[in-house]
């Protein structure tokens, strides 16, 4: 554990030092290899839970742009590393590791890309951009993660219809089970998944996509069919984003409702001194619970430049309190 502690402290210093060099990532061999990553240090004081500080997560990704056919990408992540807990003191007794993404991109034509390997499911924009420095809040809406397969291990084809607007179609298929699934009891694991995404707009100011996914849950007869819509609007004085999703759940023995469904609306407003006010409301209903959860979040984010953000937020939940616990959350997120 001493080695882990030294490793983490070393990485924290490296992260802090390298972040100062703003945009420039680590390039090797004339832009062919790019090494980057991010770190999130989180403080959580949720109701009826011990106050805790942990690293969740420390991620490293390496991408290569070799030629038209060989463009590998790997993201390896250490996550849920407890550092301190009230009543327990300092802790360096646990560490989790996962290969988040591992794939190769091949350009079949100028407009069509074939991806083979493990990648993020294009169901939710948040899921595609979930790195802590890229999102506005420490806590993640249930809509963006709960009811569908977040990772796909298989094949993905993207066809660009218009490079200027970002108009594109995506199809994917996971024929067998997940590669290197996240070993957490709360996560569902999937046997097979297929889906599609229609991205109507993806530019600097706007994002709009429709998504569909069908997934068979591993070791059960349960299947899940999800449809969703994602949107983002960026303006000089605000950024508005929203996701709506509905998942029909079949053959789940404890079903009370036919589906999980939910959505959130989030507003961020820049104010002076590199501060941003964040406000979010989310409603989510579960197929296996009679009570929905309503969550209201208000927070403040200090982002002096894009790679560094300090977040402080209060989350208030009503209804089912299994998820989205009421409490104070804070985090430091850096990209390097």
């Amino acid at each position: 554990m001493l080695l882990i502690r030294h490793l983490i402290i070393g990485l924290l210093f490296f992260t802090y030092a390298h972040t100062a060099y703003a945009e420039e990532a680590l390039f090797f061999n004339k832009n062919k290899w790019n090494v980057s990553g991010y770190l999130k240090l989180e403080f959580a004081a949720a109701n009826n839970q011990p106050t805790a500080i942990e690293i969740d997560d420390l991620s490293l990704f390496i991408s290569g742009n070799i030629n038209r056919w060989i463009n590998p990408f790997i993201e390896a992540e250490l996550y849920q590393i407890p550092l301190w807990q009230s009543g327990e003191g300092l802790q360096f007794d646990d560490i989790n590791f996962i290969i988040e993404r591992l794939y190769n991109d091949s350009k079949l034509t100028d407009a069509t890309t074939l991806r083979l390997g493990k990648f993020l499911a294009p169901v939710s924009r948040w899921n595609l951009l979930h790195a802590a420095p890229l999102v506005w809040t420490t806590s993640r809406p249930l809509t963006t993660k709960y009811s569908f397969a977040n990772y796909i291990s298989g094949i993905h084809v993207r066809h660009e219809l218009d490079v200027f607007s970002g108009h594109a179609l995506e199809f994917y298929w996971q024929p067998y089970e997940d590669f290197y699934p996240k070993p957490r009891s709360k996560s569902r694991h999937y046997q097979s998944v297929y889906g599609a995404s229609w991205i109507l707009q993806d530019d600097l100011d706007r994002y709009l996509s429709f998504n569909i996914q069908h997934a068979n849950v591993k070791h059960s007869n349960e299947s899940r069919t999800t449809i969703g819509i994602n949107g983002m609007l960026h303006h000089e004085y605000f950024e508005l984003e929203s996701e709506l999703l509905s998942t029909w759940v079949n053959n789940q023995p404890n079903n009370i409702n036919a589906q999980d469904w939910g959505g959130y609306l989030q507003l961020s407003v820049p104010i002076p001194f590199d501060l941003n006010i964040i406000s979010r409301y989310e409603h989510f209903e579960f197929s296996h619970q009679s009570q929905a959860v309503d969550t209201f979040l208000n927070g403040l984010v200090y982002r002096p430049y894009s790679k560094l953000s300090l977040k402080l937020e209060w989350q208030q939940s009503w209804g089912s309190l299994q998820e989205n616990k009421t409490g104070l959350y804070a985090s430091v997120a850096v990209m390097f």
Partner: peptide, 25 residues
Amino acid sequence: FKRSTRAMGSYWDKMSFKGISPPLI
């Protein structure tokens, strides 16, 4: 881009996360 170099930083962070590196400097 109709925005500053600094404001473009968040775009390149997102692209970097997707495996797309910014132009060589």
